[in-house]
């Protein structure tokens, strides 16, 4: 990329997936109108889902998914050694994601529930940063490609990227979205990190907090207002545990 007499490097990028749905990495191949330019800015050298070549020479590793098996830990440690810059991509990688809900139960129970009489090896789910040093986290279920693009631009120029500080409510208001509380539903919008453009409440689903906690949350007031509207603390906590981004508040594993 050339800009203002500067020429940016074209970093070698690898994308790896662990325990996940592959939805976030699919975003890399999404947004066709800018896909060619995106691929010009970076050099993808290892990406199982879209190519067969594999190289172990890369600058940036995007990690999708959480860690739930011993062999995944080993793979992750190797990647960390090779990558100069490691990015956790999506809510599973950042927080453990939906997978994390199983940590509430004994591993033998969840194994039986899913695999019946043929149990598989499984560990309690952990996010990437619980195992290795993470240089940057991009939360979201799935991540927003537009945001990934902006972050890549910032990485290329080696300048800091700042996530928005506002909660989801702010973006709902800009879309004329009727407050889900107004419709009698529980919504995590007031304490969840915005920047997603609030598509869920606009589409008819309250916020479940996939991007984690916003920069200046007011949990005391949030529990109050939920209670006033008939939602118990347990109900709110259960909702917060869905993506695992609120563990500092809920105290869940």
């Amino acid at each position: 990329m050339k800009y203002l007499f500067m020429e940016s490097k074209r970093p070698k990028v690898a994308v790896f997936d662990f325990t996940d749905c592959e939805g976030c990495e699919l975003q890399f191949a999404n947004k066709e109108e800018t896909l060619v330019d995106f691929l010009k800015a970076i050099d993808i050298v290892n990406f199982r889902e879209v190519m067969s070549e594999k190289s172990d020479e890369y600058d940036i590793a995007f990690i999708e998914g959480s860690i739930s098996r011993a062999d995944e830990i080993e793979r992750l440690l190797t990647i960390r050694q090779k990558a100069k810059f490691l990015i956790a991509l999506g809510s599973c990688a950042c927080f453990g994601g939906v997978n994390r809900m199983k940590n509430k139960f004994p591993m033998s129970d969840v194994n039986k529930e899913v695999y019946g009489e043929t149990p598989k090896e499984t560990l309690p789910v952990r996010s990437i940063k619980e195992l290795v040093h993470v240089d940057f986290e991009i939360p979201g279920c799935p991540v927003s490609k537009a945001e990934v693009e902006r972050i890549v631009q910032h990485i290329i120029w080696e300048v800091p990227y700042q996530f928005p500080v506002y909660p989801v409510c702010f973006e709902c208001k800009q879309r004329f979205t009727i407050c889900r509380f107004e419709l009698g539903e529980l919504c995590l919008g007031p304490v969840s990190a915005g920047g997603c453009d609030a598509p869920c409440p606009a589409g008819g689903t309250p916020c479940w907090g996939c991007r984690g906690i916003c920069a200046a949350p007011n949990f005391q007031e949030f529990f109050n207002l939920a209670k006033e509207r008939g939602f118990s603390k347990e109900e709110v906590i259960e909702r917060m545990d869905f993506f695992g981004g609120f563990r500092s508040v809920t105290g869940s594993k």
Binding site: Y166, P167, C169, F170, K173, G189, P190, V191, C214, A216, P217, N218, Q220, E221, F222
Partner: peptide, 9 residues
Amino acid sequence: GDKCLNCGT
């Protein structure tokens, strides 16, 4: 101020 959710609504 203690009640404010810092949401900008």
